[in-house]
């Protein structure tokens, strides 16, 4: 039996006006894997995730997620995936529990199971003590854990994470890593994540793709990629090697501002 694919894209392309941001992307990601999408600011990472999560219609090409077409079967895709965007997505004017309850209801988790799942999620993410606190009083690490809890409440087959640990302190970051590993193991959940943190990529990902100006410049396991670059190479070297060596004109003020804004809000 061929291993089934959680994500498959063929010539997936996104253009904004004249500008091609994602350029004929061909990706195959096996079920149960953690795949890291790396690349400089403005490389097209978030745009790729938005297309795969049905938020943005592709300009060209196709993508299948959990076996469903992101355009023609968007609702089916949505039932099978979880998503934590680059921005803060939990509602600050609600409590942790209310946020979870809303997710549970929108995913139509049967009412008999709802409370159990929410309790489990709160315990798993270490949020039991703050369940009735408004999320706007949370630290960045707590918000990220809540967002993860919300995103996996319905046991998605594929989880999309856009810079999951941005703006977190080293301890909070490590906690998120452990939770992700555990979820990946426990539910055989495929994870596609983006990150600028090479240590994170090294620790978490089974496979990496380096995106540069909308094109995959390299793909493979972390160790494989390091070997390609040199005997002593680390992932920083790999990143620099494949993403055009120096700080190029890629990325713009808007990208940086948006990233910062997220960091501020979380920090």
């Amino acid at each position: 039996m061929t291993p089934s694919l959680a994500i498959q894209t063929s010539n997936l392309t996104k253009k904004f006006g004249e500008r091609t941001v994602v350029d004929h992307l061909n990706l195959s990601i096996e079920q149960g894997k953690i795949f890291g999408l790396l690349g400089p600011n403005g490389a097209g990472k978030s745009t790729t995730i938005k297309m795969l999560t049905t938020l943005l219609p592709p300009s060209e090409g196709r993508a299948h997620v959990a076996g469903f077409d992101v355009e023609d079967e968007a609702m089916d895709v949505r039932r099978k995936i979880g998503y934590v965007p680059q921005l803060v997505s939990s509602d600050g004017s609600l409590t942790a529990e209310e946020n979870l309850l809303l997710s549970a209801k929108l995913y139509r988790i049967p009412s008999s199971e709802r409370q159990l799942r929410i309790e489990e999620a709160l315990a798993f993410m270490g949020l039991v003590g703050v369940r009735s606190k408004l999320v706007r009083t949370f630290s960045g690490g707590m918000i990220r854990r809540l967002e993860l809890a919300q995103a996996v409440l319905h046991r998605p087959l594929v989880l999309f994470l856009d810079e999951p640990t941005i703006g977190l302190d080293p301890v909070a970051r490590r906690t998120v890593w452990e939770k992700l590993k555990e979820m990946n193991k426990r539910f055989a959940m495929t994870i596609l994540m983006t990150t600028h943190d090479m240590e994170e990529a090294d620790f978490l990902c089974d496979e990496l793709g380096i995106l540069h100006q909308g094109v995959i410049a390299a793909i493979g396991g972390p160790d494989e990629l390091k070997k390609q670059v040199g005997p002593e190479a680390n992932l920083d070297d790999v990143f620099i090697h494949f993403s055009g060596a120096t700080i190029t004109e890629s990325g713009n003020f808007g990208d940086v501002r948006q990233t910062r804004r997220t960091a501020n809000r979380l920090g």
């Binding site: 999560t53 938020l55 949505r78 803060v88 997505s89 919300q150």
Partner: peptide
């Protein structure tokens, strides 16, 4: 939308 709450809602099967 600027926060990301809308993104999350749009990805649910609603």
């Amino acid at each position: 939308k600027d926060l990301g709450v809308v993104h999350k809602l749009l990805v649910t099967p609603t």
